[in-house]
Simulated assay, not measured.
Amino acid sequence: MSVKIALTLLCLLPLSANAGVYKWVDANGQTHFGDRPPAKAASSEVTVKASPASVDAGARERHQKMTEFLEQQQEEREARQAAGAKAEEKAEKQAELCRKLRARLKHLASVSTFYNINDQGERVYVNEAENTRIREDFRKKVRSTCGNE
């Protein structure tokens, strides 16, 4: 952005030539100025002081609007990048969760029967209908979370 500002300021400054300015008086007494000294007359080099460039209010306002626009564009770009990074992080977490759920679903398929632990700490095996319901409930959970098995 600083390059654009520098270029804008450069355009606003007057360009001064490196060639010298010469002053001489001709035979009729008229004073002349030129970038080359005359061959037949005595001349002296004159230092020309360029007045500073004046920037009108309209140019200043356009420059301010351009600067504000560029800053707004930068802020919006940074906001989009931050939102993209956040969405990517969320997608990675979702993918990891689905990987774990699918691994657990695969493990459930290999288990022949499920059990609960009663108050005495003993295993109480569930019946076949309950086994099927547990597997189907978990499949539904994986589908709703990950979209498919």
Rank of each mutant, 00 (worst) to 15 (best):
S43V: 01
E45N: 04
V46W: 09
V46T: 09
T47D: 13
K49S: 08
K49E: 09
A50P: 15
S51I: 05
S51H: 07
S51L: 07
A53D: 05
A53R: 01
S54M: 10
V55N: 02
V55E: 03
V55D: 00
A57M: 13
A57W: 04
G58A: 04
G58H: 07
A59S: 09
R60F: 15
R60L: 15
E61L: 15
E61I: 12
R62T: 04
R62H: 06
H63L: 15
Q64P: 06
Q64G: 14
Q64C: 14
M66F: 14
T67A: 15
E68C: 12
F69H: 12
F69K: 13
E71S: 11
Q72S: 12
Q73K: 11
Q73D: 11
Q73M: 08
Q74K: 11
E75I: 08
E75Q: 08
E75L: 07
E76D: 13
A79D: 10
R80Y: 11
R80T: 09
Q81V: 10
Q81C: 07
A82D: 04
A82L: 07
A83Y: 06
A85T: 06
A85G: 09
K86E: 11
K86P: 07
E89N: 04
K90F: 02
K90Q: 06
K90R: 03
A91L: 04
A91D: 02
E92P: 13
E92G: 11
K93E: 02
K93A: 06
Q94P: 07
E96C: 01
C98H: 00
K100M: 02
K100S: 02
K100H: 01
L101S: 00
R102F: 01
R104M: 00
L105Q: 14
L108A: 08
